[in-house]
């Protein structure tokens, strides 16, 4: 601690030191101000019940050649009963821009009204802007009851 008495170069170091301390304090202060602010802006993760299977109702209540949106946790799932009496289930979230798709009986296809995207009944994107096929779900018949489960 003999810097002060000796030379001017040491005085500058002393000043530099103060600059760093005060600058650092300023940065810390700003950071401590911004951190809670930005944290606040991030919405908290809601605890979600992990859903792996839902009951979609009785087979008799699902008309042929129709599509129904089923609540799968907080995601919509489209259950299609085709004209050939096949049961298929897909995520109803269009892979293009997040709209909810529907079954269009006159086309025999799954259709997204937002940008005219079309998927066949295997969930493959066949025309329009969707970049990927729809995510598929498994349909299980337990007697009369229709169950939808995740593929894995």
């Amino acid at each position: 601690m003999n810097a002060g008495i000796e030379s001017t170069s040491n005085v500058t170091t002393k000043r530099d030191f103060l600059k760093y301390v005060l600058g650092g304090a300023l940065v810390t202060w700003v950071a401590s101000l911004l951190y809670p602010l930005f944290s606040y802006l991030q919405p908290p993760r809601q605890a979600e019940v992990e859903v792996t299977s839902v009951n979609a109702g009785r087979l008799a209540d699902i008309p042929k050649d129709s599509g129904t949106i089923i609540r799968f946790g907080n995601k919509p799932v489209l259950l299609v009963r085709s004209s050939t009496d096949q049961l298929r289930a897909f995520s109803a979230v269009c892979t293009h821009l997040d709209c909810t798709v529907q079954y269009k009986s006159d086309l025999g296809m799954i259709w997204c009204a937002c940008h005219n995207g079309k998927y066949d009944l295997n969930g493959r994107n066949v025309s329009g802007p969707p970049p990927r096929p729809l995510e598929e779900y498994r349909v299980i018949l337990k007697g009369e009851e229709v169950h939808i489960t995740t593929m894995t």
Binding site: I69, R71, N74, P76, L78, A92, C94, C99, T100, V101, Q102, C112, A113, C114, H115, P129
Partner: peptide, 23 residues
């Protein structure tokens, strides 16, 4: 949130030119 998107979804007209270009 659990209904299919209806036909005729489009943004306000002053966004249309960008929206249409994306198509």
């Amino acid at each position: 949130a659990f209904a299919s998107a209806p036909a005729g979804i489009r943004p306000e007209w002053y966004f249309l030119f960008m929206f249409q270009s994306l198509k």
